[in-house]
Amino acid sequence: MKTTARRFVDFFTNRAAYDRFFKSLRYALYVIVHPFDGFWDLTHEKRGSLAAANFILILSLLTCVFRIEFTTFQFIKVNYERVNFFMEMMGILLPFIIFVVTNWALTTLFDGKGTLKDVWIASAYAMTPYPLIVIPNTILSNFLAEEEDTFNYFFHDFSIVWSALLFISAIMMVHAYSIGKTMLCIVFTILGMAIVIFLLLLFFSLISDSVAYFYSLYREIIFRIY
């Protein structure tokens, strides 16, 4: 019987697991330049892994913060009194989660082949160009003057466009859709996201209303008792 500590150490010193992780992570570099092959093999041949996908996702979130913090003030001016880095990260993470869930929910109805895990992994892999380009771009921005801002904006926008194209091919390959069906699927996913957001807002506002109701009830009772 292994102790918990022993298991913990084993988990972090498992050479084979690390190899698998790095191999699947390195596969992201293949995916971004061979999107069709890459995304097909990613899920159907199990070349990707959840660990690597989550790593890329977290790296993207950190990149977003890194970019705001370390780009020269000439290109991005940050009012530190108003900026909340947690909210900036949520600005990427929440749409990502809602996208994946909505897409999975839709595609299960329209005979998509991917599972929720497949969609998650493929979507996370599609974000690879963002940290890959934006991190060096942010560092380089500190060697640029205000007139040369075009470089900075171009590379940032380029990474996003690249990611967007990868998202499309990811959906296409994971669900084994044709290009037309993919486009339709993406349009409906966006509509679905709007509905999900609406329902979430409705849910939270109702919850907060009912909490406020019970809280005022509680206060009333407390006032009466004392």
Binding site: F73, Q74, K77, A145, E146, E147
Partner: peptide, 9 residues
């Protein structure tokens, strides 16, 4: 940023 850019160059 304008003047900074000039100085920085």
């Amino acid at each position: 940023d304008n003047n900074y850019g000039d100085a920085f160059q």
